[in-house]
C-alpha cells in the first residue's frame, strides 16, 4: 500500500487509500504508516477516499495513535463520511480521536 502524503506546515497529511479499509488491508496500512510514525509527530489521516471501514481498520488507527502519543505526538482524522462516523460513535472512538471536517482545519488545530 502506498500512502499519498503532503505537508501543511509541519503537519503530515496522509491520504488513506479507498474505497475499503478492512481486514484485507489494515495490516498493509499499518506497515505503510510505520515510516511516517517514525519521522513525524503531527499526523492527520485524510479519509476522503474511504467509503467503508471495519473494526480491524479502527484497531490499526488506535495502534498508530498510541505510538504517536507515546512519542509525544498526536494523530487526528478528517474528511470522514457519515457511515464511518457512525462506526466511530458506535464504539465511542469519536472521544478518543479528534475528528475535523477538512485537512486545513485539522492542520490548524495543531497550532
Amino acid at each position: 500500500m502506498t500512502l499519498k502524503t503532503r505537508k501543511i506546515d509541519e503537519v503530515m497529511i496522509v491520504g488513506v487509500p479507498g474505497p475499503n479499509l478492512d481486514i484485507s488491508s489494515s495490516d498493509a496500512f499499518k506497515i505503510a504508516m510505520a515510516p511516517i510514525l517514525a519521522s513525524d509527530r503531527k499526523v492527520v489521516l485524510d479519509l476522503g477516499d474511504v467509503e467503508f471501514m471495519d473494526s480491524s481498520a479502527l484497531g490499526s488507527f488506535l495502534t498508530c495513535l498510541r505510538q504517536l502519543n507515546a512519542a509525544g505526538g498526536d494523530m487526528k482524522l478528517c474528511r470522514m463520511r457519515k457511515t464511518i462516523r457512525n462506526l466511530f460513535e458506535l464504539v465511542r472512538m469519536h472521544r478518543v480521536f479528534e475528528i475535523l471536517d477538512t485537512a486545513d482545519e485539522a492542520a490548524a488545530s495543531f497550532r
Partner: peptide, 20 residues
C-alpha cells in the same frame, strides 16, 4: 465486551454486530 477507552485495538467486532 470491548474497552471503549482506546486501550485495546480489537474486540469491537461482536459489539458492532450486536449494535448494527
Amino acid at each position: 465486551a470491548p474497552d471503549f477507552d482506546g486501550t485495546r485495538d480489537g474486540g469491537f467486532g461482536v459489539y458492532i454486530i450486536s449494535q448494527s
